[in-house]
Every structure is written in C-alpha cells, then in structure tokens.
Design a protein around this nucleic acid. Sequence first.
DNA 1: TAGGCCATCTGGTCCT
DNA 2: AGGACCAGATGGCCTA
Length: 158
Amino acid sequence: MSPKGNQSANPKRNKANARERNRMHGLNHALDELRRHIPLSSWNLNSSFPIINYHHTMMMTTTTTTSSSYRTNHHHHQTKLSKIETLRLARNYLILLTEIVHYHQCYNRLLTGQILAYGLGQQSLNQLATLLNIDGSIRSLSEPCRQVQAIFAKYSII
DNA sequence: TAGGCCATCTGGTCCT
DNA sequence: AGGACCAGATGGCCTA
C-alpha cells in the first residue's frame, strides 16, 4: 500500500519493516566491503594489489562514497559500481586470481583487462580502461578474445 | 523521455 | 510466535 515513507498502522508490520530495512543495510554494507577489495572502486597507487600494480602505472583516484549517496562523485569523475556490476567484477577478479595462482598463468595487460571486463557495462568498461591505461576504444575490452572466452566457458559462464 | 538503479514496503515461506 | 529471507511492487533520482 505504501511503498515509501508512510508508516503502517500495524505495529507488527512497522517492526518487520524496520528489521527488513536493517537487513538490507547490512547487505549493502557487505557490498561496500566487497567493493573495497575489487578493482575500480577504491584502488589507488598505495593499494596492495600486486596483480594490477605490477602492470599499471596509472590508477583511479580513491573515493569514498556513502551507500546513501548517489553513485556519481563529481569531484573525481568516478562512479560507484552498481550492485550487479560489483558482483560481476568480483566474479571476474576471482577467476583472474584463480587462473594466475592455481594454473600459474600469466596475462598481459589486455588479457587482464578482458578478463576483468567480461560481462560488464559500458561505464565500468570505461573506468577499467582508464585504470589499466588501455588506449583507444573500450572495444578491446568489450570484445574478449578466444582465450578469454575459453576461460569463462571453463567456469560455465557464457 | 526511457531506462537503469536504488530504497522501501509488503506478504509469503521457512526456520528456531 | 517471532525473526530471517525472499521476491514483487512502487516511486524517486539520475543519465544517455
């Protein structure tokens, strides 16, 4: 009846709504924590992510945004990853690390970018291209080569 | 203006 | 019974 703002007349319902709000805040907090550990959101030159630092000299500026604020930080021209993009990038990052650690694979900058970029939206691709200092259009990231396609096929991701 | 993303409310289901 | 979890609905904000 009142999807936003209004309090229900039912005290039980109000209590349940408060619990649900709290639960979702917890979920969002966990997502923020996840964002801190994947590329794009909060990486900087002092970050301790050797996989990327090894390859790249130019990093995005660190930004802290509250979960309540909107996703765009106009001062730093950086946007907060959406929930779905956060999960996709986290998945890609796990796959990249798995390939490196478990299978002793070594990827150049473009392949690294294509793995991280797999399935991401245009805005994330742009940020990723900047992070990885990849010149030219983001097409090189959005069109994965056969090797990258094979990696994701291995994990049943199409 | 349409579409994407988000927070919130809500009722249903399952668990303790 | 009460709480946790989930998915659908709704309305607001923002960008392309």
